[in-house]
Amino acid sequence: MNDPIVVSQEPVLLVGGAHGDNAQLLSLLDEVTTVVAADSGADWVRAVGRLPNALIGDFDSVSDETRAALPPETVHRIEEQDSTDFDKAIRSISAPMIIGIGFLGGQVDHLLAAMTVLARYPDRAIVLLGEHDVVAHLPPQIGLPLELGTRVSLYPMRPVTGISTGLHWPIDGLELSPGDRVGTSNRADGPVSLTLHGPGMLIILPVSERHGLQQALAQADGLWPAL
């Protein structure tokens, strides 16, 4: 990871440019003390009457008006074009957890790029929220306090095996991979536990499960090594 631009001992909110539900953003802004905007995510934060603590990106989409509204010391331009603004921000933040909003809506190519970045940082606890879903990269082991019938989708970004309890369709003995078998639209028969044999597995849950997922990630016994 680069020398971090933003350092926090608490979860950091990272706001992207795929603007969504203002009420959802305002609720998150009230939960955290440190807010980072990835490029035009700063426009969304400003549109709801707030300003981020830091702006990170290549600045190809953030408005001049928003940049001018921010103190110069909070504006951090990373000009290289080999990575997304989401990636630039992730590698510039040191925090126990990053909660991201504004990355799952908008263009499909941007969404796919965000999923790729999640898989690139298996050593980080990152939770992405949309209006309907919450997505995270799974650690080696996790327990989720889900209720009967909760939608659970597992999406591998590379070949992954593992074992499960509490899933209606267990993953034991299966190899999941993006080019073959995936685990979408499974469901919980009650609390779910997952043990993965390698990194690369994303979990997608209803956004109502966000707090439970965050708590489970915080309590997980270690993450994967950095790639």
Rank of each mutant, 00 (worst) to 15 (best):
L213W: 07
L138R: 00
D189C: 12
M157K: 02
G183V: 02
I99V: 15
A114W: 01
L29P: 06
A119N: 05
Q215S: 13
V207I: 15
D3Y: 06
P4I: 08
A23L: 10
G143M: 03
D60K: 09
A136D: 01
L28C: 11
A113S: 15
L154C: 11
E209D: 15
A216N: 04
T195H: 10
P72C: 07
L70V: 13
D109R: 10
M97C: 13
P206R: 10
T84H: 04
I204D: 00
V6I: 14
S177N: 11
T195V: 15
N186D: 12
V12P: 00
W224D: 04
G166D: 10
Y155R: 00
A23T: 14
E175V: 13
H76L: 11
I126L: 11
V127S: 01
Y121A: 02
R187T: 14
W224V: 08
T33D: 15
S92F: 08
Q9S: 15
L223N: 01
G143K: 00
G49C: 13
V192G: 03
A218Q: 14
A218E: 13
G106Y: 12
D123Y: 00
R77H: 13
D39E: 08
T74V: 13
E31M: 13
P4A: 12
G183D: 05
D60V: 10
S193N: 12
L128K: 02
H132R: 14
V108F: 15
P72T: 09
G190M: 10
Q141F: 09
V160Q: 00
P225V: 06
L146T: 09
S208F: 09
P140T: 09
L176A: 00
L176V: 00
I5N: 07
E79Y: 04
G130V: 10
L14N: 02
L144T: 05
N2R: 15
L176Q: 00
N2Y: 11
A47M: 08
T66I: 06
L29Q: 05
L174V: 07
I203T: 03
E31F: 07
T150N: 12
S94Q: 13
R210C: 11
L154D: 01
G20R: 07
P191N: 06
V48L: 10
H197P: 04
E80R: 05
N53V: 10
E73H: 15
D58K: 01
W169Q: 05
T184V: 15
L144D: 03
A95I: 07
